[in-house]
Design a protein around this nucleic acid. Structure first.
Lengths: 129, 129
DNA sequence: CTTACGGTCTACAGTAACTGTAGGGGCAAG
DNA sequence: CTTGCCCCTACAGTTACTGTAGACCGTAAG
């Protein structure tokens, strides 16, 4: 499979795959005689894992750790649990923060009753801290 | 007031203030005879507005528009309302997405019961997508 | 007068995680 | 044989800053 096939199979941009190879998330790909990158089903699985982990908000460094774990199945899984748990904590914090933001923003938006800027509560609301 | 004073007054890094000047969010500052930037209370208010708008998640471009509006009080405030409303929409979308992420991640975390990586549901859960 | 210290200056590199573009080559179909 | 799509490398651009290097300024102490 060439890079375009892998890209379609995993819904990833071609450039992104090459980028993942550069930063070591994907292994250095084998090449066809003419120099094009060649992939297997294992690569599809690995890239799917990466994409899903990224979609879950794991940083590339975290993904790197998770992949290392994945590749050493005899290790204890405590490290994976730690990474995931601490990530969950930070997601819940972001969630709480975003909720506050949403509420404040909703207030700002609903405060406008039209008219001139000089009387507009939106601008005022943002100016107040 | 010198740049350090403005920085303290608004809880902003000195470099960030110079950056805002570069991109036109803050006006080009007046200088003392020796070439140091000099600020007034108006600048404190303007930078506070910027910082608060940024904290509300407005992009620098959106902040630029809001400031322009702020500086033309005779305009209709419809544009401000539009910017704020469309921003609210995108925040609500992010919020919903983050909630899904949180739930999925919570599942992932609770699926681990210790042991070796080969049996670990965390890795498996992330691999499934 | 000199030295030390902290604040300020410009200018540029680095961050995260890609995305886009330029300029070139390969390969099968019409 | 040329058209068109895919692939290659290499590098610039994105967002919103943050950090650093090397130099200058202003004030206070010795």
């Amino acid at each position: 499979m060439l890079i375009g096939g892998l890209a379609k199979a995993t819904n990833t941009k071609v450039n992104t795959i090459r980028f993942y190879e550069d930063i070591g998330l994907m292994p250095v790909a084998a090449r066809t005689p003419s120099g094009q990158r060649s992939y297997t089903d294992d690569d599809v699985r690995r890239l799917s894992f990466i994409r899903h982990a990224r979609a879950l908000g794991f940083s590339t460094d975290e993904v790197r750790s998770l992949i290392e774990l994945k590749d050493t199945p005899d290790e204890d899984c405590e490290i994976a649990a730690q990474i995931a748990a601490s990530h969950l904590t930070s997601v819940e914090q972001r969630l709480a923060q975003l909720k506050r933001l949403r509420d404040e923003l909703a207030n700002v938006v609903s405060s406008c009753s039209g008219g001139k800027v000089i009387n507009c509560r939106i601008i005022e609301s943002i100016a107040e801290g």
